[in-house]
């Protein structure tokens, strides 16, 4: 009897629950198993594969998205924890066909090689610049501590974040 009881418990635990959230400005309602991570909801349920899964253990930062404006590692947030929240992924940064200033800066400064870490880098940088519009290079390096890049050696990434921040300040001044 015991294994059967155990299986029944397992099935009960797999009952999906509804989660409502706003992703890149669009209201979404998704049914997910409780153990589903936010990264999986974004990638598999919503098809937003710009959010990359690297280490899947809260270390590499490739899965970084903005959750209510703050950078989080979406591999370590339950989809159900995002109930009622607003999520911004890399797909939500560009306005129409115009790249976000950080995206332009990463391209112009050669802030990427393979590009796998780039969406997470850009969203972590967006969190930093929202709180500190004119960060020092040291501040940028500290703020990107949770984002690993195996290609660039980081210097061009720091250059890109500084250039993106400057462009965002200019955009703000022009408006």
């Amino acid at each position: 009897m015991r294994p059967v009881i155990r299986r029944i418990h397992r099935e009960v635990r797999r009952v999906p629950q509804e989660v409502s959230l706003v992703v890149n400005g669009v209201d979404r309602r998704v049914s997910v198993e409780p153990r589903r991570m936010l990264a999986e909801l974004l990638r598999d349920d919503l098809g937003l594969t710009g959010t990359n899964l690297g280490c899947d253990t809260t270390q590499c930062g490739a899965c970084t998205v903005l959750l209510d404006g703050r950078a989080v590692k979406s591999c370590s947030v339950l989809a159900l924890q995002a109930e009622g929240s607003s999520v911004t992924t890399i797909e939500g940064l560009a306005e129409g066909g115009t790249l976000h200033p950080l995206q332009t800066a990463f391209a112009e400064c050669h802030g990427l090689q393979c590009g796998f870490c780039t969406p997470g880098m850009i969203l972590a940088a967006a969190d930093l610049i929202a709180r500190d519009p004119d960060p020092a290079p040291e501040t940028v390096r500290h703020a990107l501590e949770g984002n690993l890049c195996r290609c660039t050696g980081y210097h061009t990434i720091v250059d890109a974040v500084l250039a993106g921040a400057a462009a965002m300040r200019d955009d703000g001044a022009a408006r």
Binding site: R13, P34, R35, T57, C75, S76, V77, L78, L80, Q81
Partner: peptide
Amino acid sequence: LLAGGQSLLPLLKLRLAEVGTLLDIG
């Protein structure tokens, strides 16, 4: 109890821990 989950969720993913019900107190 689940608060921020930055220790607990990695433990669950690595299957170093297994839980029946998570109660989100966040």
